[in-house]
Amino acid sequence: MPDTTPQYPDSYSQDDIQQILNIAIARHHTHEELSRQQLWEIASELDISNAIIQAAEKDWLEQKIVDRQRHTFNLYRRQNFKQKLTKFAIVNIFLVSLNIIAAGSLTWSLYILLFWGLGVALNGWRAYQTQGEEHERAFQRWSFQNEVKQTVSTVWTKLQKTWQV
């Protein structure tokens, strides 16, 4: 029977070290969360400077905010699609029914159903597509619009408070 013991390398790349430590930490603390102090202690033991761990923590927090915004954006797009799909269904059920009652068969309403359906299908594809350049541009545009709305709202609130005094 051949020997199947793994051959451990003498050195590891940073990527390898990160993966090994991720596995080890996941196994060591299965249901327990680490405190921020413990994070800093681990970094200190790994000879990672306070500035580096603080910068990494800041980057991680910023990434979590962006991820939350992306999730909100995707929910917003899907909600919009569902509203458009509902309108499409209601209007086209009415038009098809009217066409069948008036003409006895599908004639003109079929064209409306097909062309509008194509638009709705493309909109649905965009709503559920979460990768790619177009999605990224749409997210950036939505994010910018939200920032502008929030800024205007903040300025308006401050103006109202100023006028009340």
Rank of each mutant, 00 (worst) to 15 (best):
M1T: 13
M1D: 12
P2C: 04
P6M: 06
Q7E: 10
S11Y: 02
Y12I: 06
S13V: 09
Q14L: 13
Q14N: 11
D15W: 11
D16M: 07
D16E: 15
Q18F: 09
I25L: 15
I25R: 07
A26N: 04
H29V: 06
T30R: 03
H31R: 10
H31I: 06
E32G: 08
R36W: 12
R36V: 10
R36H: 11
Q38D: 08
L39T: 14
L39D: 07
W40E: 02
W40P: 00
W40L: 08
I42A: 00
I42P: 00
S44V: 04
E45D: 13
L46T: 05
D47T: 12
S49H: 11
N50V: 12
Q54K: 15
A55D: 15
A56S: 15
K58A: 12
W60C: 11
Q63S: 08
K64M: 09
V66T: 13
D67H: 07
R68N: 10
Q69K: 14
R70Y: 00
R70M: 00
R70T: 00
F73M: 07
F73N: 05
F73V: 02
N74Y: 04
L75Y: 03
Y76I: 04
R77E: 02
R77C: 01
R77Y: 01
Q79M: 03
N80C: 10
K82N: 08
K84L: 07
K84S: 05
A89M: 04
I93N: 05
I93A: 10
L95I: 05
V96Q: 02
L98T: 00
I100K: 02
I101G: 00
A103R: 09
G104H: 01
L106M: 13
S109T: 01
S109P: 01
L110G: 00
L110F: 04
I112S: 02
L113W: 08
L113V: 05
L114D: 04
F115Y: 09
F115P: 00
G117Q: 04
G119I: 07
V120S: 02
A121V: 12
A121W: 14
G124C: 05
G124R: 03
R126G: 03
T130E: 15
Q131S: 08
Q131R: 14
E134K: 14
E134I: 12
E134H: 06
A138S: 11
A138D: 12
W142V: 05
S143H: 14
N146V: 02
E147V: 06
K149T: 07
T151N: 11
S153H: 04
S153T: 07
T154S: 07
T154C: 00
V155F: 06
T157P: 00
K158M: 08
Q160M: 06
Q160P: 01
Q160V: 04
K161T: 10
W163R: 10
V165Y: 10
V165R: 13
